[in-house]
Measured scan of single mutants.
Amino acid sequence: PEDEKKAKEALKRANGDEDKAKEILRKLGVDPDRAEELLRRLR
């Protein structure tokens, strides 16, 4: 869904750096736990 698209985009923008991607997602208003879960799934 929408969050998943955001997560993929964030990872791309962060050049695969998960911590940076998490930060980006947090700024986009995605719940930190949700962000973590999404990134884990994309790994």
Rank of each mutant, 00 (worst) to 15 (best):
K22G: 04
A21V: 03
N15R: 10
E4R: 10
R13F: 12
D19W: 10
R40E: 11
D3Y: 08
A35V: 11
L28Y: 08
E23Y: 05
I24R: 02
D17V: 05
L39D: 00
A7E: 01
E4S: 07
K12E: 12
A7D: 01
K20Q: 11
A10F: 02
K8W: 14
A10T: 02
A7V: 12
R43I: 12
V30S: 01
G29T: 01
P1Y: 14
D19L: 13
K20T: 09
K27P: 01
R26M: 15
E23Q: 08
E2V: 08
K5P: 06
K5H: 12
K27V: 11
R13Y: 11
N15T: 03
L39S: 00
R13M: 15
L38R: 00
L25D: 00
K5L: 14
K6L: 15
E37Q: 09
A21W: 02
N15A: 09
E36V: 08
L38D: 01
R34T: 12
A14V: 06
A14L: 01
K6W: 15
L11S: 02
E36K: 07
K5G: 08
L28S: 07
L38A: 05
L28W: 15
A10I: 04
L42K: 02
E37S: 06
P32A: 12
K22V: 08
K8R: 15
E36T: 08
D19F: 11
K6F: 13
E4A: 09
L11Y: 06
R26Q: 14
V30E: 02
L38N: 01
N15K: 10
L38T: 03
L42G: 03
K8E: 09
E18S: 09
L39E: 00
A7M: 05
E4I: 15
G16V: 02
L28E: 10
K8A: 12
A35S: 05
P32M: 11
D31W: 05
E36Y: 05
A7T: 05
K5M: 14
R41A: 14
L11T: 01
D3S: 05
D31A: 13
A35N: 01
K22M: 12
K27A: 15
N15M: 10
G16P: 01
E4G: 05
K6V: 14
K22F: 12
D33P: 05
L25G: 00
D17G: 02
E18D: 06
R41M: 14
D3F: 09
R41I: 11
A35I: 15
I24F: 09
L42Y: 06
K12M: 12
P32K: 11
L42S: 03
A35G: 04
L42M: 06
K8C: 05
A7F: 05
L39W: 02
K8V: 13
R40A: 12
R40M: 10
R34Y: 14
L25Y: 01
E23G: 06
D19T: 13
R34Q: 09
E18N: 07
I24D: 04
K6H: 12
D3E: 12
D17H: 06
N15H: 12
A10R: 00
V30P: 00
D17S: 06
R43F: 08
E9S: 07
P32I: 09
A21D: 00
K12S: 10
K20H: 07
A7L: 07
E4L: 15
E18L: 14
A35P: 00
L38Y: 04
A10M: 03
L28I: 06
K27N: 13
N15W: 08
E36P: 01
K5F: 13
E36H: 06
K27I: 12
K6E: 07
D33R: 12
P32W: 09
R43E: 06
E37T: 06
E18H: 15
L11V: 04
G29R: 03
K22T: 05
E23H: 06
A14E: 02
E9D: 11
E9A: 11
E18T: 10
G16Y: 09
D19K: 14
R34H: 10
E2A: 11
V30G: 01
D19C: 04
E37L: 09
D17A: 05
K5I: 14
R34C: 05
R26C: 07
G16F: 07
A35F: 07
K5Q: 14
A7Y: 04
K20I: 14
A21Y: 04
E37I: 08
L25F: 01
P32Y: 08
E4T: 10
D17N: 10
L11F: 06
G16T: 01
A21G: 02
E18I: 15
A7P: 01
E9K: 08
E4Y: 15
L28T: 04
A35W: 07
E37F: 06
A14F: 04
I24S: 03
A14Q: 02
N15V: 04
D19Q: 14
E2F: 10
K8M: 13
E36I: 08
D33F: 11
R40V: 09
K20L: 14
K22D: 02
D19P: 06
G16W: 09
R34W: 13
P1R: 13
N15E: 08
E9Y: 14
G29F: 03
R13N: 10
E2M: 10
K8T: 07
L39R: 00
D17W: 04
P1F: 14
R13L: 15
K6M: 15
D31P: 15
K27R: 13
A14Y: 04
R26S: 11
L39Y: 03
G16A: 03
K12V: 10
R41D: 10
R34V: 14
V30A: 02
E2K: 07
L39K: 00
K6T: 11
D17Q: 04
K8Q: 10
L28M: 14
A21M: 04
D31E: 10
E4M: 15
E4K: 06
E2N: 11
R41K: 14
R43M: 11
R26W: 11
K22S: 05
A14D: 00
K12P: 00
E37D: 08
K6Y: 13
L11K: 02
G29K: 03
E9P: 00
R41G: 12
L38G: 00
